[in-house]
Simulated assay, not measured.
Amino acid sequence: MSRDYAKAKPVSVGDIPVIDFAPLMLQGNVTEVSKPLMSAALNTGFFYIKNHGIDPQVIQQALDASRHFFHLSQEEKALVAVNTNQRGWLGPKMATLEGAKTHDLKEIFFTGPEFWSDEMWAKRTQIPLITHNLWPASLPELKRDLLAYYDATCLLGRQVLKAIAVGLGENSDFFEHRYTSPLGRSQLVYYPRSSQQDEADERFGAAPHTDFGVITLLYQDNNGGLQVLNKQQEWVEATPIENTFVCNIGDLLHRWTNGYLSSNLHRVINRSNNERYSMPIFFDPDADTIVDPRDFKKFVNDVSNYAPIKVADYIHSKNSKAFAQYNQSQDK
């Protein structure tokens, strides 16, 4: 394999800082967390979270359940094949991210909220992505363990949004009324090891991309492979740090702040000798929320760079370009 293919330098604090959330989680001190968080959000848009308050056992059980799912037979996984509401198992060769030369190596199991508010559920025929989850009958622990992880991570996401709101000069509850029954998309992701042929074909576990939503909270295993593009246009290894989450700013928050916060490119290439697993939660607002830069008047100054857009419409449009099931004639 070429030494220069997908080369990245070691992580540095200047690129991806580690932010201690203990002052916020234990003492309610938003300001102490929001200052370093905003510095990161304006730089690469990435940071690590330590002292996040999530029980390590909850994380480990979800990770174990993820491994068990991806080790099921193709036939068993196909019983919960992905649909155009973005729920279920996305098999090999079905993800091709915008600008990529070829498909990604990854497999994904998609879920979302297990429960919706009555008001949101009533809108399911008008708004995409409001739907039920698909769960494999042969692996009942997957639902139990993933939902425990999902709920805990979404609670962490609410704390991150408090810090972002304060950092943007708003009240800490700025996002709360936009997260009454949030979309909160979840993925379990499996990455096989990259081969010499994959590299020759310029195929990644996940090709360079930005995330579609507001914020992403990611737990990654210890195998490494996540790389982030910094402001100097250098790829940086987002090395796993024990008992931390990686958090990053997505496209919708970049739009919402009129381009103020950074939604940066990142990619995954698994060069370890192991299968790689990660568990991102894309913590997005209520599906019908309108993302409008004019909500943050200090960043608009009478010139809005982005038109208002509904959260679910934007994400659905991105999904339909990236995932193969949208090109199939019939939803499952």
Score class of each variant (00 low, 15 high):
residue 313 D to E: 14
residue 197 Q to K: 15
residue 279 M to V: 10
residue 139 L to I: 02
residue 128 P to W: 12
residue 123 K to C: 07
residue 290 I to D: 02
residue 116 W to V: 03
residue 65 A to P: 00
residue 297 K to S: 15
residue 144 R to C: 04
residue 273 N to P: 00
residue 211 D to H: 09
residue 234 E to W: 09
residue 1 M to L: 05
residue 62 A to T: 00
residue 256 W to Y: 07
residue 86 Q to R: 13
residue 183 L to N: 14
residue 203 R to C: 04
residue 92 P to Y: 10
residue 323 F to G: 04
residue 132 H to N: 14
residue 59 I to F: 05
residue 39 S to P: 01
residue 111 T to P: 02
residue 189 V to L: 14
residue 272 S to H: 05
residue 92 P to R: 07
residue 214 V to Y: 09
residue 227 Q to K: 10
residue 100 A to S: 11
residue 181 S to D: 10
residue 89 W to F: 13
residue 298 K to W: 11
residue 192 P to C: 01
residue 186 S to A: 14
residue 183 L to P: 13
residue 207 A to Q: 08
residue 229 L to V: 11
residue 1 M to H: 04
residue 237 E to F: 06
residue 100 A to G: 02
residue 267 R to Y: 06
residue 229 L to Q: 14
residue 156 L to K: 06
residue 9 K to E: 12
residue 32 E to C: 01
residue 122 A to Y: 07
residue 46 F to M: 02
residue 237 E to H: 13
residue 199 E to G: 02
residue 22 A to Y: 02
residue 171 N to S: 10
residue 249 I to E: 06
residue 204 F to I: 01
residue 11 V to W: 14
residue 115 F to S: 11
residue 232 Q to S: 15
residue 272 S to K: 08
residue 22 A to K: 12
residue 26 L to V: 08
residue 242 E to K: 13
residue 69 F to P: 01
residue 90 L to A: 13
residue 222 N to V: 07
residue 249 I to T: 03
residue 248 N to I: 06
residue 8 A to G: 13
residue 2 S to A: 11
residue 1 M to K: 06
residue 154 C to E: 04
residue 56 P to F: 05
residue 13 V to P: 09
residue 300 V to Y: 10
residue 180 T to I: 12
residue 89 W to A: 01
residue 93 K to Y: 12
residue 41 A to N: 06
residue 215 I to Q: 09
residue 300 V to E: 12
residue 111 T to L: 12
residue 106 K to L: 09
residue 174 F to L: 00
residue 275 E to L: 08
residue 102 T to H: 02
residue 70 F to L: 01
residue 78 A to T: 05
residue 246 V to P: 10
residue 251 D to N: 14
residue 230 N to Y: 10
residue 44 T to R: 00
residue 63 L to Y: 13
residue 45 G to A: 08
residue 195 S to F: 00
residue 184 G to H: 12
residue 273 N to K: 10
residue 42 L to H: 09
residue 310 K to Q: 15
residue 218 L to I: 14
residue 328 Q to E: 15
residue 113 P to W: 00
residue 256 W to P: 04
residue 218 L to Y: 07
residue 161 L to T: 05
